[in-house]
Design a binder for these strands. Structure first.
Lengths: 147, 147
DNA sequence: CTCAGTGCAAAGGATTTGCATGCCG
DNA sequence: CGGCATGCAAATCCTTTGCACTGAG
């Protein structure tokens, strides 16, 4: 996984290239902010972390990054969407979503549970003729701060 | 569970009353549409299923129903939010979310898997000092129609 | 009577888009 | 040079809100 992190930018560049896009400095800046923060961020979060970014360009670049599977968009009940690096650039994980302040934190479950879950979900998908892209397991509640 | 379904409207009325609200005919109409459809619906879906409803009132009534825990709001990547009956009025279930057409379908997992999952999640919540309200397990992919 | 509920129209707010300019390849 | 990328401002679109009216208790 550390190897992946090392050339994360190379991977990002390659994926963008695959969709005929460039890995410009703005796009790289967004990815760097996400790497640095290590948590799903809203657009305002991203803009304040790097004030040189223009709002519309940030949204547009995020769209490209999402299309290229470099970034993933998380929807919560919060008014803003949250953005984070694609799972395969980090590690498979889940989210703790605070219904009070809207914050999103990552967590992982034991591999055994994850495997069991995948098996069960696989069967269901087959039964429902549904082509699974990925699963999403979140815990909704109140975070430490909102107690 | 069938008993619950029988006096679902009674339950809805009671819960609204608990928040000092009435179970008016519009609200009942919304609940009936949701019961009839048996699937999470968007606001346009609801309006076209019962054309006597006004848009703003529908939104307002849904808010009350959500506050009274009669209806639950599901957020997807789709532009519209989806609404469905609260889980305890139906049964604990999860969602198949189509990333192509945005449709949402229900499914359930074996009780054993569910129990195992709850156990694992409970430990995590404790470790993270997170007060879990509920968990959310969705499968994202392509539905039968979108192949 | 009173006050919650309703409907219309207008406002709000995150996200998207049009367009002229800048810059990489 | 040519076309993608950028930034500003304006437009979009789901959702919420203001306000006057209606109806149930």
């Amino acid at each position: 996984m550390t190897a992946v992190a090392t050339d994360l930018h190379t991977t990002a560049a390659r994926r963008l290239a695959a969709s005929g896009q460039r890995y410009t400095s703005s796009r790289r800046a967004i990815v760097e902010v996400l790497v640095r923060t290590q948590a799903p961020m809203t657009l305002p979060d991203i803009l304040s972390a790097d004030t040189t970014l223009a709002q519309s360009s940030a949204y547009r670049n995020l769209s490209e990054l999402i299309a290229a599977d470099v970034v993933h968009r998380i929807v919560t009940t919060d008014e803003h969407a949250h953005f984070e690096l694609a799972e395969d650039l980090t590690e498979h994980h889940h989210h703790l979503i605070c219904s009070s302040c809207g914050s999103v934190t990552d967590f992982q479950v034991p591999a055994a549970v994850e495997a069991e879950l995948d098996r069960a979900l696989g069967q269901i998908a087959e039964r429902e003729t549904f082509a699974v892209d990925h699963h999403r397991l979140d815990l909704v509640g109140r975070c430490q701060n909102c107690g």
